[in-house]
């Protein structure tokens, strides 16, 4: 029996879909069987981020309405062993699915997969309730900005009333240069405000844009900072104890020299 994890944020545009795609791919690279469910009905995007947009025949709504069998709607990612996408419907209204139907779908999926990742839509309305309906655990994605952190706080409260009391936090798009000069909230600031366990920190990395252009999750490339961050997140989900580097700590003299020479490529996040 697998585990259903919902990836949510409240605010849009903080990187839920990218996070879902990369954690899913990283878990598949670790040898786990993974299905990613796009719960953003009417505004699907997980398919393009994964580069699977041309292979969709049926979708989530077709499964729920009985138009096709569960297996028929699952899109297999040929680049990996056991990685699948359950696409959202693009031409339907989000009210086409009920929380009870989502719960049933999640239960069916976790019998076949080690991990079921639900990519939640933005907002706190019907789509959010659907996304969390069948979840065993929740991941909250935020960026270190006031608007995103405020919405994350709201979502943490809503998760608690949906029996998901201990969500894990991912701080996305952290800009080390801004943090260093005190113009962006650091890991401790964000943690202190939200008060939930930290799962990982993903630095702002242009490779995300490049990989999304190509439809290849950034974790495939081990040399990218964001890729390494997502691999670490997946390993932590699997119970490995991998420390999160404190980016805010004072640089050693050697670090400063390395930075000047552009040699600090070995930083872990």
């Amino acid at each position: 029996m697998g585990e259903v994890i919902v990836i949510t944020s409240g605010k849009g545009g903080v990187g839920k879909t990218t996070t879902t795609a990369n954690i899913g791919t990283a878990l598949a690279l670790e040898g786990k069987s993974v299905v990613m469910v796009d719960a953003d009905i009417g505004l699907r995007n997980l398919d393009v981020v994964l580069g699977l947009e041309n292979r969709i025949v049926y979708d989530l709504v077709d499964v729920v309405e009985g138009t096709c069998r569960l297996k028929q709607a699952l899109v297999r990612d040929k680049r990996f062993d056991k990685m699948y996408l359950m696409p959202a419907a693009q031409t339907r209204d989000k009210n086409a699915v009920s929380p009870e139907q989502m719960q049933k779908l999640c239960n069916d999926l976790k019998e076949q997969f080690d991990f079921v990742l639900i990519d939640s839509p933005a907002g706190i309305e019907h789509g959010f309730k659907n996304a969390v309906a069948g979840a065993d655990r929740a991941i909250v994605v935020t960026v270190p900005e006031v608007s995103a952190v405020r919405d994350a706080d709201r979502i943490i409260g809503m998760l608690a009333t949906n029996d998901l009391s201990n969500p894990l936090l991912i701080i996305n798009r952290l800009r080390v240069d801004l943090v260093k000069r005190g113009d962006m909230m650091n890991i401790d600031d964000t943690n202190e405000i939200l008060g939930i366990d930290l799962l990982g920190v993903v630095p702002d990395d242009e490779n995300i844009v490049i990989s999304t252009n190509r439809g290849e999750p950034v974790v495939i490339d081990e040399d990218t900072m964001a890729g390494r961050a997502f691999r670490n997140i997946a390993k932590r989900l699997l119970g490995e104890d991998i420390p999160i580097m404190d980016l805010d700590e004072e640089d050693t003299f050697l670090d400063k020299i390395k930075r000047l020479l552009g040699m600090d490529k070995n930083k872990k996040h």
Partner: peptide, 11 residues
């Protein structure tokens, strides 16, 4: 630091 202002406003 602008991050301290952000933190105070958020709190």
């Amino acid at each position: 630091k602008s991050k301290d202002i952000a933190k105070e406003r958020l709190k």
